[in-house]
């Protein structure tokens, strides 16, 4: 085991743990429910999830030469399944399966 790598990992791990744990000890009880900090924090979740979704599909969009049919069908499957089932688990699995199947169809020469 490389000692330098281990020390670096421990430093980064401790800092990351501090970023995740430290702010949970902030006392929110004195914060007005309609104050600027409450509004900021209430929007952080949707903003973070939207950001992570966009950031995760961006390489797929950039790396594809033409229209990305697997991505389009994958997203449509998530939307359709969620509208039908209201289940995060089912929608995630449906989107992933649809993406893989369409990728397989598109990748097969002469099939499409």
């Amino acid at each position: 085991m490389n000692l330098g790598l281990l020390i670096m990992a421990v430093c980064v791990g401790l800092a990351t743990w501090g970023f995740r744990f430290g702010p949970t000890k902030i006392d929110l009880s004195a914060m007005p429910s309609d104050g600027w900090l409450a509004r900021f924090l209430a929007s952080t979740g949707p903003a973070a999830i939207a950001t992570l979704f966009v950031a995760s599909i961006l390489p797929m969009v950039q790396g594809f030469g033409g229209p990305n049919l697997p991505l389009f069908i994958g997203i449509a499957s998530v939307l359709g399944c969620y509208a039908f089932s209201r289940s995060v688990v089912m929608s995630t699995l449906a989107g992933s399966v649809a993406y893989g199947v369409v990728f397989w169809i598109v990748a097969r020469p002469g099939l499409l």
Partner: peptide
């Protein structure tokens, strides 16, 4: 990406 989209919808 599918998980993030489903979470966003939820």
């Amino acid at each position: 990406p599918a998980l993030f989209l489903a979470l966003l919808l939820s």
